[in-house]
């Protein structure tokens, strides 16, 4: 493509770290836009990106979260399009990004399906993932979409509850609109202005959702449900204690939904959940929330 510079936006910093790693591998300069709020609550990933040689640009506009980071990255891109490639980190944004991200992330689902068939000899009964912009979810959902026996659930950030504005449940509590070059469910007011939203997890803190998820919700193939901040926080601790795995706050939302559903399912039924990231990046935030200074 002849591009000599990479830019990315990031919420939790996972995509920023991945982009910085790729750029370091190929010796390309890398600028990562990250909301100022997220720079603070995901400090370990900011440090990782810097170690990898990337420049992290904090974005103070709006609520200083993923939406604002994406705005700034798009502005950089239109200014430097001649030499810059914009590596979008989620299944949202203008065409063809949602489609490309969907294709690349499908590796998760393809491998999971293969491993499931090897280990269990059959398909799972339930596939579940947390949804921010929707990349880890579309990746694991995709190879199962045509398997009618597989129930699929996407978990949105219910934040502090769906009644007010402090959540990011775009499908459950939003309405269709146009943002960042795609028509999808959004958090917006009656005048079509985009709301800021809120989630305990930086990666789910986005007032929209990838357009394919909106479509999957509309056709009824995937159920989207909200999980509140406090439920995710609880699930974060439960998984750590029961399995010795510290999950990221994003998939902690999916874990909380699994904890709700598993007791109602048969003993032989199989749940496949995407544990999309580990929680090292979140220990300072969680420590603070639990009243333990680190």
């Amino acid at each position: 493509m002849g591009k000599t510079r990479i830019i990315a936006e990031t919420g939790a910093g996972q995509h920023g770290v991945a982009s910085a790693t790729v750029a370091a591998r190929f010796g390309l300069p890398c600028v990562v836009y990250m909301g100022a709020t997220d720079v603070e609550r995901q400090a370990p990933n900011v440090f990782r990106m810097k170690l990898l040689g990337a420049e992290v640009k904090p974005v103070t506009a709006g609520s200083g979260t993923l939406k604002d980071a994406m705005n700034e990255a798009l502005r950089d891109w239109v200014t430097n399009v001649d030499d810059t490639y914009y590596l979008i980190g989620t299944a949202a944004g203008p065409h063809p990004y949602p489609e490309m991200v969907h294709d690349f992330q499908s590796v998760i689902g393809i491998e999971a399906k293969q491993q499931m068939l090897e280990a269990e000899g059959r398909l799972p009964d339930l596939v579940i993932a947390a949804v921010g912009g929707g990349s880890n979810a579309i990746g694991i959902f995709h190879p199962f979409l045509d398997d009618g026996s597989v129930k699929i659930v996407g978990v949105e950030a219910g934040g502090k509850g769906l009644e007010g504005d402090e959540h990011c449940a775009s499908i459950t509590a939003g309405s269709p609109g146009v943002l960042h070059g795609n028509r999808t469910y959004l958090l917006q007011d009656s005048d079509g202005q985009i709301k800021e939203g809120h989630s305990i997890s930086a990666g789910l803190d986005y007032p929209g959702i990838g357009p394919e998820h909106s479509w999957l919700a509309d056709i009824g193939r995937v159920d989207y449900v909200p999980i509140m901040d406090h439920e995710a926080l609880e699930a974060f601790q439960v998984l750590t204690r029961l399995e010795g795995i510290i999950p990221a706050l994003e998939p902690s939302h999916a874990i909380a939904e699994v904890i709700k559903r598993a007791p109602k399912m048969g003993k032989d039924e199989i749940i496949l959940m995407n544990l999309s990231g580990r929680g090292d990046k979140d220990i300072f935030t969680v420590g603070k929330l639990l009243g333990m200074g680190l």
Binding site: A61, G62, K67, N71, L74, R75, V78, L179, H180, G192, Q193, I194
Partner: peptide, 8 residues
């Protein structure tokens, strides 16, 4: 007005 200060 729209709070998304996007491309142009």
């Amino acid at each position: 007005p729209f709070p998304i200060r996007w491309p142009t």
